[in-house]
Simulated assay, not measured.
Amino acid sequence: MKQLRTIASSLALTLGLSVGLPGATSADVQHLDDVIISFSLCVGNDCVNGESFGFDTLRLKENNLRIHFNDTSSSASFPTRDWRIVINDSSNGGSNYFAIEDTDAGRQVFRIDADAPASSLYVDSSGEIGVGTSTPVTQIHVVDGNTPTLRLDQNGSSGFTPQVFDLAANESNFFIRDVTNGSQLPLRIQPGADTNALYIASNNHIGMGTASPDDNIHIVDSSDGFFGVTLDDTGATGGTGSWRMVHGGHDTTFRISRAGSGLSELILYEGGDLKIGGTLTTDGSCSVGCDAVFEESYALPSIDDHAEYMWANRHLPNVGPTAEQGPMNISEKIGGMLNELETAHIYIEQLHREQQAAQTQIAHFEERLSRLEQN
């Protein structure tokens, strides 16, 4: 036996092997040089003599399939993370899957469950990713038979309030779904919408039908020259109805009307004329003190002083000058006119009393004259 071991050791040294024989302390085989296998290799308890490899070059065959990448770096400047490829659970009734495990952290960072459909995740030669397709045409291409969806799930693990949104599309619309709050759909776009139906420029101007909005909101209609804005109150406690702001169509006017009434409460014409169907009320106050002229403390100018100012300045004192062109403060102007109207009525009343006094005096003189003539 001693002679056999000597021969075996010599042979092993010649082949670059360390061989364990019966009675030796180890049965492991250690290769002290590169190993080249010209055909296939089977590793595992269930490999058999005459294994049929088919096209397999390397086969792992047993009931616990794992490949462990054990980084033995000892210097702090080198990475030491260990990784493992895991095939299926080892427990009875466990799951079937392929996974990559961060061994040091004890968690699976990538996993494919058995029976996943074809092309569940596909990366083509240009780096485009297909989800459900082997022919992606964009950087990420998602294919599904019913409403392909991307879910954005803030799960609260970082201390923030959980919130879930879905980004999805189907034959009816593209939409954003607020899953957390009753699956409301705050944004929807139906197929067939025109280019630039809604456009937000870099300066935050919003264009509707245009990619070059000139104002905060710029609406362009290129189909029939008729467009409008509807304000619809649908409050649960009883709304005030719908109002429409409309431009174009049958003329060049801008109209505000109650939806469905067939009437226009306000019409602004191209030349600047304005027509309203009711009364006009402003919140402006009478800055000159309209009814104050009837107070005893009001310094009412005399008729002569008022007339002198009027002719010298070519406008009524409390109305102010009126520019031939330019904006006009209607509230201020009407208030001044009312003050002047009330002042004029006071002057009229003063003159009326003076006239009455004069008529009484004339009648008295006429009576005395008549008596003298009789005598």
Score class of each variant (00 low, 15 high):
3 Q>P: 06
12 A>L: 05
13 L>N: 13
14 T>R: 13
16 G>V: 06
16 G>C: 06
20 G>I: 03
21 L>P: 03
21 L>T: 09
22 P>N: 11
23 G>P: 02
24 A>W: 06
28 D>P: 00
29 V>Y: 04
39 F>Q: 15
41 L>E: 04
46 D>A: 14
47 C>F: 06
48 V>R: 12
49 N>C: 10
50 G>P: 01
58 L>A: 08
60 L>F: 07
61 K>W: 07
65 L>W: 02
67 I>W: 07
68 H>S: 12
71 D>H: 09
74 S>D: 10
79 P>A: 06
81 R>T: 11
82 D>V: 04
83 W>R: 03
92 N>W: 10
92 N>V: 15
94 G>P: 00
94 G>I: 05
96 N>H: 12
100 I>V: 15
100 I>W: 04
104 D>H: 05
112 I>R: 09
113 D>G: 08
113 D>I: 06
117 P>T: 09
118 A>H: 09
119 S>Y: 05
124 D>C: 05
126 S>T: 15
126 S>M: 11
129 I>G: 00
130 G>S: 01
131 V>Q: 02
132 G>R: 00
133 T>Y: 01
134 S>Q: 05
139 Q>H: 10
149 T>N: 00
149 T>A: 04
151 R>Q: 14
155 N>C: 05
155 N>W: 01
156 G>T: 03
158 S>H: 11
159 G>H: 05
166 D>P: 02
169 A>L: 08
170 N>G: 06
172 S>K: 14
176 I>L: 03
178 D>K: 00
179 V>P: 00
182 G>A: 01
183 S>Q: 07
185 L>Q: 06
187 L>G: 02
190 Q>W: 08
196 N>G: 05
200 I>F: 08
202 S>H: 08
209 G>M: 02
211 A>T: 09
213 P>G: 01
217 I>D: 04
218 H>E: 03
222 S>V: 14
223 S>E: 14
227 F>D: 04
228 G>S: 10
228 G>D: 04
230 T>I: 14
239 G>T: 07
242 S>H: 04
245 M>N: 03
245 M>F: 14
256 I>W: 00
256 I>P: 00
260 G>R: 06
260 G>P: 02
262 G>V: 05
271 G>T: 14
276 I>W: 00
276 I>V: 11
279 T>D: 11
283 D>Q: 14
283 D>A: 13
284 G>N: 05
284 G>A: 09
292 A>H: 08
295 E>H: 08
300 L>F: 02
302 S>I: 07
302 S>W: 11
306 H>E: 06
310 M>T: 13
310 M>N: 07
312 A>N: 13
313 N>C: 07
314 R>A: 10
316 L>M: 13
317 P>G: 03
318 N>R: 04
319 V>A: 07
319 V>R: 03
320 G>P: 02
323 A>H: 11
325 Q>T: 15
326 G>A: 10
329 N>P: 04
330 I>N: 08
335 G>R: 01
336 G>N: 01
337 M>W: 15
338 L>T: 07
339 N>S: 12
341 L>H: 08
342 E>I: 09
348 I>Y: 14
352 H>A: 15
357 A>N: 11
357 A>K: 09
358 A>S: 11
362 I>F: 12
364 H>D: 12
371 R>S: 12
